[in-house]
Amino acid sequence: MGANGETVTVLKPQLKLILAAVIACMAMTAAPRVAMASGGGGLDEGGFVSDVLGGSHPLFEAVGFYLFGGLAAFSAIAICFTKDVVRMAIWLFATLGAVAILYFLLTAYFLGVIQIIVYAGGTLVLLIFGVMLTTKSPSMQFAVSKIGLAAGGVVSLLLFAALMGLVLGTDWQRGEPTGSIPVATLGRDLLTTYLVPFEVISVLLLVVMIGAAYLARQERE
């Protein structure tokens, strides 16, 4: 990695290929589902497309879960071991995209779309802006002490072991997996049952936007 900004290659070519493939997969998986979810308010249960892509075929669901779940987990762990912030952001993009696909597998189509639009398209871009505005060189790194890393690693591994024990040992309530929810139902609930949180969070966004704009603004004097 060149430190002076000229010869910086943020991503290796292979990684670019993998990312392109992932994005293509995401697009292929997402597009028909979105079309169906927004068009008919649900999936047509008999058709080939919905049978294969709708997650109703167990093999497809397994493949989808292991592929994209694996990608999400791998890129999340990769974030831990990356020192360069820009690379962290790219890995986060992979995690967010893979999680969006998992939402599709979970038949939460609207959420998957929102995850891509708001999270990958908004929050992540915001974070990358943050990186750009707070560094002199795009590959700036801070050395973290080995002891700190080791302690953090041990803590996280212990935490992971404990969580695994808890999550797998708990007798969660189970039921028949529910199908997809039409967007109209979600919208109606947002404006009835969840009216108060909906309104409050819009005030929150207004207040936060004013605060963020004020802080980020350069004072002219």
């Binding site: 969840y194 949180p197 409050v200 969070i201 005030v203 929150l204 207004l206 207040v207 004013i210 605060g211």
Partner: peptide, 29 residues
């Protein structure tokens, strides 16, 4: 004052709910 009143609104909501979603939003506000 937008920021100050925003925190005030959040605190007013914090004490007036037992819904966990609204608790989270109020604490964030």
């Amino acid at each position: 004052f937008v920021l100050l009143l925003g925190t005030a609104l959040g605190m007013a909501l914090m004490v007036g709910t037992l819904n966990m979603l609204l608790i989270v939003i109020a604490i964030e506000l």
